[in-house]
Design a protein around this nucleic acid. Structure first.
Lengths: 210, 210
DNA sequence: CATGTTTTGTGATTTGTTTCACATTAAAAA
DNA sequence: TTTTTAATGTGAAACAAATCACAAAACATG
């Protein structure tokens, strides 16, 4: 029962996500090549760091000519395996849950919320674009769509129960918005997003600055 | 114009947030003392790490008796200065923005969204519990409530413009939900929450496991 | 009251990450 | 064609973070 906290993802992999955002931006602006220096500037890291990261993942550029943006994007896509749609489920149709269901960007990245679950039957009748189902149907949906990953957006108090049910139904990865450290078996991945902590940390640092 | 990315906050400070969550949980269960071992178990870190963290911040326990939970919570509160209400503003009343405005937990942590801003006048008439104002009123509100920190939940395309306006109006800390690396002056803190990246990283790791 | 046990507190060590330094290469300039 | 310049690529060095090991303290027990 080891808990893997926040930094589920290694820093260098996180930077790959950042690089991708930047690269897409450069591409949109009409560039097709990029120097480590410029990408670093955009991504907020040193040029050394950029080259080192690419070096680790065997992404090659051209001496003097920089990196070809499309190649980099393809390499990153390859690392994160973007060929196929990834089906996920969502538990908890409160404020956060509803926002996530309507969040368009997931689909652009081939991540599809196939269904959401809520204990409250009144939520189940409302129209959200995807089915809102009772918890009892969880296993059926997970099996049907071969779902591995769930987004957990339930209140703190029911987070652990929901987690147990998810794991019981075959889920092995959870993106958790509840401010609770979930107890899960070793093989289950948990990544926590704590909105209060994030906001608070910004406030903390702005006060340090002054 | 240096961008401070994701890890705005040092790892040890992040762990303090985690410890607090756990400590509140233990307190609720009726404990008033805690051993580093048990807290570590709950927080998903080693007991050594817990003691080391507390040691760094001069939080003292009692040999053989463990730590007094209330003392720890007070010490953490002291580090993050929780005496006063912290006023923040929100920009962008899309899905995410609306969810954040209704997010109860901010208030429990004395973080109060005093107003939100949206260019769309139709949003301004709707009832969300707090005023939804045109961008032109930003400076007035920031001055009135001495706001330092803003939550940015606008579409990617308008994120940089909104950021410029925020900084221009005196904001020095931004919690950014737009998938863009914002260009800001050195003294401005940016913390990025990229929901796609987070979900994707969970998917990535579940696929590694299998 | 002495002895054993449990837990904190922290310097020393190890491990991990970032930065540095420079060899290598390719293009441009002379 | 040779020289200069500007980039990548990566091992080595420096730095940062986590773990280890154990001394010190407090309590429990005989």
């Amino acid at each position: 029962m080891k808990q893997i906290t926040k930094h589920v993802i290694r820093n260098d992999l996180k930077r790959l996500f950042t690089y991708r955002i930047c690269l897409i931006g450069f591409k949109r602006k009409g560039f097709d090549r990029i120097y480590s220096h410029d990408l670093g500037e955009e991504a907020g890291v040193t040029a050394d760091q950029v080259r080192k990261d690419f070096s680790v993942y065997k992404m090659k550029g051209n001496k003097k000519g920089g990196y070809i943006i499309t190649d980099l994007l393809n390499a990153i896509d390859e690392i994160f395996k973007y060929q196929n749609n990834q089906y996920v489920i969502l538990v908890g149709m409160g404020n956060i849950g509803q926002a996530l269901v309507q969040y368009k960007r997931f689909i652009l990245r081939k991540m599809i919320i196939v269904a959401s679950f809520d204990i409250n039957p009144s939520k189940q009748s409302k129209r959200f674009g995807i089915p809102v189902l009772p918890m009892s149907m969880m296993r059926e949906i997970i099996d049907k769509f071969h779902v591995n990953v769930a987004i957990l957006a339930v209140p703190e108090i029911s987070a652990q129960d929901a987690t147990n049910k998810l794991i019981d139904s075959g889920i092995i990865g959870i993106l958790n918005f509840a401010p609770v450290i979930l107890k899960v078996p070793d093989e289950v991945i948990v990544s926590n997003i704590n909105l209060c902590d994030e906001l608070e940390s910004v406030i903390y640092y702005t006060q340090k600055v002054m």
